[in-house]
Nucleic acid binder design. Sequence first.
DNA 1: TTTGTTCATTGCAATATTACGATGAATAAA
DNA 2: TTTATTCATCGTAATATTGCAATGAACAAA
Lengths: 109, 109
Amino acid sequence: MGLAKTEIFTDLQNEIAVIAKAFGHPARVAILQHLFKMDTCVCGDLVSEIGLAQPTISQHLKELKLLGLIKGNVEGTSVCYCIDSENWTKMKAIISQFLDQDLSNKNCC
Amino acid sequence: MGLAKTEIFTDLQNEIAVIAKAFGHPARVAILQHLFKMDTCVCGDLVSEIGLAQPTISQHLKELKLLGLIKGNVEGTSVCYCIDSENWTKMKAIISQFLDQDLSNKNCC
DNA sequence: TTTGTTCATTGCAATATTACGATGAATAAA
DNA sequence: TTTATTCATCGTAATATTGCAATGAACAAA
């Protein structure tokens, strides 16, 4: 039905899924990488940097902002985006904990 | 259009997105967590463990298997799934590298 | 062989996602 | 004020995802 049955999963499982979903599109990965690469914040360079239309980039930025991974500040007519380092660190911890599960003698079958 | 323009992104960006997408559903997160928790492999316990119908679980397992995150071995009428530790390590490295980007003085705006 | 068990596959309905043109809001420059 | 620039939002088309009932395939037990 296109909609996940979130109510049957734990908060952590849902949280991991929501964060991972944000990374689940190459455009959002590219946006985040670019924001990391630039020492200072970037604005609509993202549109020319990545080859997608402006509304499309704007939509991806909105999702990342909604999740809290990035922040956006208005500067005149342009908007400056940057990584929200505090939230990034939190999310990284959640994902890392999931990825770092013990792999000892897990090569069964 | 519901379809990502993968051709305009780098291989790494697409790879990160594909892996993250696999983690982007709580059912798949739950499946992986369960496979990690069990010392030995699990089979269709996943269906009763997670509250989804058998075809739905089977479909999620298929995606995880296709990506290489898990392996499935037939044992009589049942199928035993487990983490593919080698591939898990590889994917973990790719995601970790993405998550570990430098955050120094990235609190602009 | 027949029956039951386990799992995969198919087909479908409901919803989500992606992408973009058109448009609007806000500000800066002329 | 007029015009240009930058970005967000709306509306919509195309496609993807999620979930399950129905069914099929493979095997084990009787």
